[in-house]
Amino acid sequence: MGLSKVSNIEALVKQIKEEMLPDIDPYSFVSASAYDTAWLAMVPADPDQTCPMFKECLEWVVNNQTKEGCWGECVDAIDTLSATLACVIAIHKWSIGANNIKRGLDFVQENAEKILRKTEDHFPRWFTIIFPGMIELARKVGIQLAFPSQLNSFLLDIFHKRQLLLDTEELIGNQYYPPLLSYLEALPPSYDVSERDITMNLNADGSLFQSPAATASAFMATGNERSLSYLQTVVGRCANGVPPTFPMDEELIRLCLVNQLQRLGLANHFTHEIEEILVQIYRNYKTLEWLDKASNNIVDVGIQLHKDSVAFRLLRMHGYSISPRHFCWFLNNQEVRAQIEENQGYFTISMLNVYRATDLMFPGENEVEEARSFSRKVLEKITLKDSSLASTGLNKM
């Protein structure tokens, strides 16, 4: 590598350290969700709906359309279709950005067939609920969607699958997580959700399942002050687009930052910063060593398991002495194991990180071996259900 390239890298590293790392705000490293940001952009500031309450969210939507015309991190991912429709709806609501709307609709109409056929017959539950909901909402507000005729039967099948979900699942039930109510913004008008259903299920922070999109919809439906306060907090904390869930575990964000620096081969440029993060994480784990981490809340379980497995792997990689029980605790909790088995899709990331953590197993660590076996079986079941995950290599473990 030439000296000029080395100098450029060093200059960039210095700039990142000066601008981003001194007083790290973990949320600055979290990718914005175009879908959720669009829903906050739809919230009106007054009953007459003359202007948006969160203008910064609308500005983010207008300014973050890709050159292909869509919104989202990956142009050929199915979530891009839902996000793009939501962004188009938000812009259309405030009668701005005619060119943005045209480019967004062109993208959806020209690429829907290619994107959908890649995941044919293996659509995630969330997509089966949200995508038809965005199509319906777009048409309700007067947006003309013209899909290719050869896609009609395909779309009808998706709508049919959604109806099966709506007919068989309860609004708030234990069979699937997250429940239907967490997709409030995408549920059809025919699915009668009362104001009481919403307010009775708000979290203490005013959110609906800590989802900015669902909470925006809840606030527009109820005018609940706690929900408004939650939305204001989200926007105040996440100025550059809102995340798909809020709040997030800030320790987990820092661990994911360290993990990403290592995966990109940049860890050597940030050794001091990485060590500072890991020292604090290690201190916290030693302080909480004897506390029971088990929780009956499925969200808490998923986040805790994700964080503990990433922390275990990174700390062992950097020479810290850490016991396997810090991430194997779930094995001795039959209720948690049952939650994982019953909601495998929800625990995909957690189980993948558990499996990766077991790569740092020492001889004689039987509980780590058990965790490896358990996580592998769960991941294999997931790949059988969803062939779209085959490209991640899970089926070759």
Rank of each mutant, 00 (worst) to 15 (best):
N366F: 09
T50R: 13
H122Q: 08
L389E: 12
I198M: 08
C328P: 01
N174V: 10
N100D: 06
S229A: 13
L166Q: 06
L257Y: 03
E73W: 03
N297S: 07
N353V: 06
T50L: 05
K307P: 12
N201F: 03
L252S: 07
A239R: 06
C87P: 11
W290S: 15
M20S: 10
L156A: 15
F246Q: 00
L171I: 14
V235C: 04
I349G: 09
Y285K: 14
E342I: 07
D197L: 12
G142Q: 12
K396P: 00
G97Q: 07
I158H: 00
A146T: 15
W94G: 04
A239P: 01
Y355S: 06
G302Q: 07
L261Y: 02
L331N: 08
L389R: 14
P243V: 08
E195A: 15
V61S: 00
G69M: 02
N152K: 14
L145Y: 06
K114L: 10
T66E: 03
L305P: 02
G133H: 00
I101E: 03
D79A: 15
E289L: 13
V242T: 05
I135V: 11
G302P: 02
Q339G: 09
D359Y: 10
P178I: 08
Q144A: 06
L145Q: 05
A186S: 08
K114G: 04
N332A: 13
E18K: 11
K102H: 10
L389S: 10
R254C: 10
N343E: 03
M361N: 05
N203G: 12
L394G: 08
I158Q: 01
K118Y: 03
Q262E: 08
Y230P: 13
R162I: 03
F362R: 14
P324S: 06
C70G: 05
L105N: 01
R316G: 14
T119A: 11
L171N: 04
Q339K: 04
L116H: 00
S33H: 06
E365F: 09
T66C: 09
R263N: 09
L384T: 14
V88R: 00
R316I: 13
E251Q: 04
S33Y: 00
F159R: 07
I349F: 11
Y230C: 12
L181D: 01
W60R: 01
D79V: 09
L228H: 06
S7V: 08
L231Y: 05
E289P: 02
E273A: 07
R316F: 14
S31T: 11
K114N: 13
Q334I: 14
C74H: 11
T215M: 04
H269A: 13
C256I: 14
N333P: 02
F246G: 02
M200N: 11
D197M: 05
F330A: 04
V108I: 08
E68S: 07
D359T: 10
A77W: 00
Q150W: 08
A218W: 00
L305S: 04
N201G: 15
